[in-house]
Simulated scan of single mutants.
Amino acid sequence: MSNLVTVPKNGSLTNTTSNVNFPLWSNWIDDLFNRDLPSVFTSNFNTGITLPKVNIKETADAFMVEMAVPGLKKSDFHIDLDNQVLSISTETKEDKEEKNSNYTRREFGYASFKRSFTLPETVDDDKINANYTDGILSILLPKKEEAKQKPARNIKIS
């Protein structure tokens, strides 16, 4: 609550002329539902990581998809193309057990995500390639020859 209540010199909290210092009940409810949810509610409960962000750039010859996913290996990714839908997914599991003379501690973790994109018909799906370097997954989606932008040319009048 951001408003402070001022106490009159007689010590009473009652103000008979105005209720300006006390927010209305409806304002409290509005504030509760309009504020951002804590990150624990917006992250993936199973992994503690959020869905990776994607940059998509179009050039005259291709589309480039870049996804920041540090800490993984190339073998962790599954990239599939099915009926013009490109899916990028990963699933990692970690199982660790420590034994000491007095206790056993076992920890395990699971992380996964999947992002899917419908590709335009202009993509030449036989020439798609992917690269994973320094935590960035890059996927090159070349355009078909007939879809590439051709340079401007001068047409002579006969």
Rank of each mutant, 00 (worst) to 15 (best):
S39G: 10
A152Y: 15
D124F: 04
K74D: 14
N46V: 06
I49G: 04
I136L: 09
R105A: 13
P52W: 00
G71W: 11
K127C: 00
P142Q: 02
G48V: 00
N15A: 01
D36Q: 13
A111I: 09
W28D: 06
Y132P: 04
P120V: 00
T59D: 08
P70R: 08
F63K: 02
R105G: 08
L32D: 11
L119K: 02
N102E: 06
K53G: 11
T133I: 10
E97W: 10
F63A: 00
V123R: 03
D125A: 12
L24C: 01
A147C: 12
K150A: 15
D61I: 05
A147L: 07
S138T: 15
R105C: 05
V20A: 06
D76Y: 15
V5D: 01
S89E: 14
S12A: 09
K127V: 01
M1Q: 11
I88L: 13
N83S: 13
M67G: 02
F77P: 06
N129K: 08
I29A: 06
N3E: 12
P23H: 02
E94F: 11
P120E: 01
N34E: 09
E146D: 10
T118E: 12
D31I: 04
V69P: 02
S112A: 12
N83G: 12
T14A: 09
P70K: 06
D134S: 10
G11Y: 06
S138L: 03
M1I: 09
S26R: 04
V7L: 12
T118M: 04
K57D: 02
N83C: 03
P23W: 04
P142T: 03
A111S: 14
V54G: 01
D31E: 09
V85R: 10
P38K: 10
P38M: 03
T122F: 01
A68R: 13
T133D: 15
N27T: 04
L51V: 10
T118R: 12
F63R: 00
E97Y: 08
S2G: 13
N100C: 05
K74G: 12
V40R: 14
D134A: 11
R106Q: 15
F45C: 09
I155T: 14
V40A: 09
M1F: 14
E94K: 14
I139M: 12
V40G: 13
T50Q: 05
N129D: 11
S18A: 07
L137E: 01
Q84K: 13
R153N: 09
A152W: 14
D61S: 13
V65W: 04
L51E: 06
V40C: 09
S2I: 03
P70Y: 08
K148P: 05
F117Q: 00
F113N: 06
T50D: 09
P8K: 09
P142H: 05
N83H: 14
N55D: 03
T104W: 08
P8H: 08
T90H: 07
T122P: 00
L141K: 00
N19T: 03
N83R: 15
V65T: 03
W25C: 06
L13N: 08
F113M: 04
I136G: 06
